[in-house]
Nucleic acid binder design. Structure first.
Lengths: 226, 226
DNA sequence: TTCTCTTTTACCATACTTTGACAAAAACTA
DNA sequence: TAGTTTTTGTCAAAGTATGGTAAAAGAGAA
């Protein structure tokens, strides 16, 4: 079971968070004071730290930065009140992995937690390059080649392809696509997914009507094979 | 079929919601009074609660918090009128799983409902791979092999086989199949089951007329032996 | 504006699901 | 035991849902 450390001073929030996350099968530890939380995070081994920006005695940003300085790479998820604050949170300066701005739903929080944990544990998540068939992908450069010549993929198409690759061989339902590629705040039709599959097939399959890599699984969704 | 409890005092909204969600194949129960809704939620077993924040006699926030305090973890989706209100709604303090702000589209609501329900059911992970005789199954990849070579099973066939495996050795009546594999919302003939058994036997037995794994139990149903 | 990317819509083809008919087997009757 | 009834096996055809596809509508950026 994954362990999560919550550093939060508001007892109401802490209690609610703890209950919700325990219900999702995480083991929760908590600290309500910034300095204590920092010490705890430094010494104890947890899988994820949820950190409120506003804290007594040592604020969240400082904790985060100091942990990173001290070589602690435990993933950190920040709770912030205002959108503006987040600019600093992410990136090198502070080093948090993700953030949610209040108000947020448990669903969103949990989705982000899962995403962070997955990212950390799953090497395929930060694939930068990948090849299959006569296709070569460079996610970093946002470049795709088929038989050596460039093919233009849109942002969405690339994301979908990446998700395919991360789940190579497994059936992925249209809803899974919507959840994972589109996220929790947009709700296109499942048919939208079909259309992306179509255009991806046209771009990367030799014959889009006889796909070899992006296969349909009737009543299941799609799956990618190398 | 998933059951949803709607706690909402505005009859117009309630009626609309009920109709829309019933059309999406949910079973709807409703309460228009806060206190009654709370009692109902506490005693009856539903899969999801949709809760308006503004209610007579006991408001939505209180209901939500009290349910959580009482150890009830049924997912809750809040309906709020103004963005501002949700500050408090948030999972932490109150314990709702998600929220939508009015006005909202049915499609969004439904997408969120699906997402919440899916998340809950994700936790009950089941068999992903299984082998018996010369058959190997991979439910995640949706692949079946007999003697190492691939066999095509439809979604239904796979579900049935899975149900067989989950009840290995036990006699399963045709009605049990219909209830568990088809669900409570479709009513095929029991003959339909026979037909699936037939096609499964053809696909996985060495001699479909002398089955070794999918056995007939006269007057009882079928049973699976490894 | 135009251009590009995203999403919806609608129609069609196809694969899957279900039904119905009849044959075969098993169980019951007397 | 044979005759009758019930249950199951099997196939082919009908019915339905799902996916493929193109084209149009919407959204957003340049």
């Amino acid at each position: 079971m994954k362990q999560i450390l919550i550093i939060e001073d508001d007892p109401a929030i802490l209690k609610g968070l703890t209950a919700s996350l325990e219900a999702e099968n995480y083991k929760i530890k908590s600290q309500s004071d910034g300095e204590k939380g920092y010490q705890f995070a430094k010494t104890e081994n947890v899988d994820l730290i949820i950190l409120d920006i506003m804290l007594p005695s040592k604020n969240g940003l400082d904790i985060c930065r100091d942990l990173r300085k001290g070589g602690i790479n435990t993933p950190i998820l920040m709770l912030t009140s205002k959108k503006e604050e987040i600019d600093k949170v992410l990136g090198f300066e502070i080093g948090a992995d993700d953030y949610v701005t209040k108000p947020f739903s448990i669903r969103e929080l949990h989705a982000r937690i899962k995403a962070i944990l997955r990212r950390k544990s799953d090497l395929t998540n930060d694939i930068m390059e990948y090849s299959f068939g006569n296709i070569h992908l460079d996610f970093k450069k946002h470049e795709v080649e088929k038989n050596g010549s460039p093919v233009k993929l849109s942002e969405m198409e690339l994301k979908i392809l990446k998700f395919f690759i991360q789940n190579e061989g497994n059936v992925i339902s249209r809803d899974q696509f919507l959840d994972n590629v589109w996220g929790y705040n947009s709700f296109p039709t499942t048919r939208t997914v079909d259309n992306y599959i179509l255009s991806l097939r046209k771009k990367i399959e030799d014959d889009f009507s006889l796909p070899e890599h992006l296969l349909t699984v009737h009543k299941g969704g799609y799956k990618f094979v190398k």
